[in-house]
């Protein structure tokens, strides 16, 4: 039977094409609660605080910068929660959250804005500040194991997109589909980014004495 391009609204129920049931976004109840009452946003905040902070910390490598970006991200998300629209797709998987993708898009934009501002103010270059901060944070505050330190440093040497994809995959444990949404790339491109990033890190760590 040929499927009509436009189905008449008044066509009998049994003649209408069946639509694939829409998958429920894992955060839908929390998002709807926050949209109805902004005070209920706290549940989303508590759920994603550490993830957003991790993303910012891996990007900026400075505790205070990461805190600032995290704060801006959540404040901006709260401000716009009423206009957020869920766009879950079956391909996104069971635990997927379009809210999380949206939140990380805000975080990514906030980080980019922060970097632009730092570039406009050369008296406080980010690289110099963050490398010192990273040493202090990691060596003295976090007391990472040597291997973890080497992995952290190797991740930091990756090109931006590869580093982001790898951090989102390993640290924030996102799906390829979610990462694609955040980075604005196709899922295939994200898979290749991660594969290449792993190859680069493997080579990097092989080349350096442990």
């Amino acid at each position: 039977m040929t499927r009509p391009a436009f189905w008449k609204v008044d066509a009998p129920e049994e003649e209408r094409p069946r639509r694939t049931p829409r998958r429920v976004d894992s955060d839908r109840p929390l998002v709807e609660a926050a949209q109805a009452d902004p005070a209920r946003f706290e549940a989303l905040y508590r759920k994603y605080l550490a993830q957003v902070y991790n993303f910012a910390f891996y990007e900026l490598r400075d505790q205070h910068e990461a805190e600032d970006v995290t704060a801006r991200t959540f404040l901006a998300a709260l401000a716009s929660i009423a206009s957020f629209e869920e766009r879950a797709r079956p391909a996104d998987g069971d635990g997927a959250s379009t809210f999380r993708v949206w939140l990380f898009q805000i975080a990514r934009n906030t980080i980019a804005e922060r970097r632009r501002r730092v570039r406009r103010r050369p008296e406080a270059p980010l690289e110099a500040a963050s490398s010192v901060a990273a040493e202090i944070d990691l060596a003295h505050e976090v007391a990472l194991h040597d291997d973890a330190m080497a992995a952290w440093q190797a991740i930091g040497r990756l090109p931006d997109d590869r580093r982001r994809a790898l951090v989102l995959r390993f640290v924030d444990e996102m799906t390829t589909s979610e990462i694609a949404g955040i980075l604005g790339r196709s899922e295939g491109a994200v898979r290749v980014l991660i594969h290449r990033a792993l190859r680069s890190v493997a080579r990097d760590l092989d080349d350096r004495p442990q």
């Binding site: 009452d37 902004p38 005070a39 946003f41 706290e42 905040y45 508590r46 605080l49 550490a50 902070y53 991790n54 910390f57 990461a66 805190e67 995290t70 704060a71 959540f74 404040l75 709260l78 401000a79 976090v142 990472l144 973890a148 992995a151 952290w152 991740i155 390993f170 640290v171």
Partner: peptide, 22 residues
């Protein structure tokens, strides 16, 4: 790969700020 959590103080300060905005 290490995972980090912001300080409790930061978490609660930001929570209070968000509550104020709400």
């Amino acid at each position: 790969l290490p995972r980090y959590h912001p300080s409790f103080r930061f978490e609660e300060t930001l929570a209070a700020r968000l509550a104020e905005v709400a």
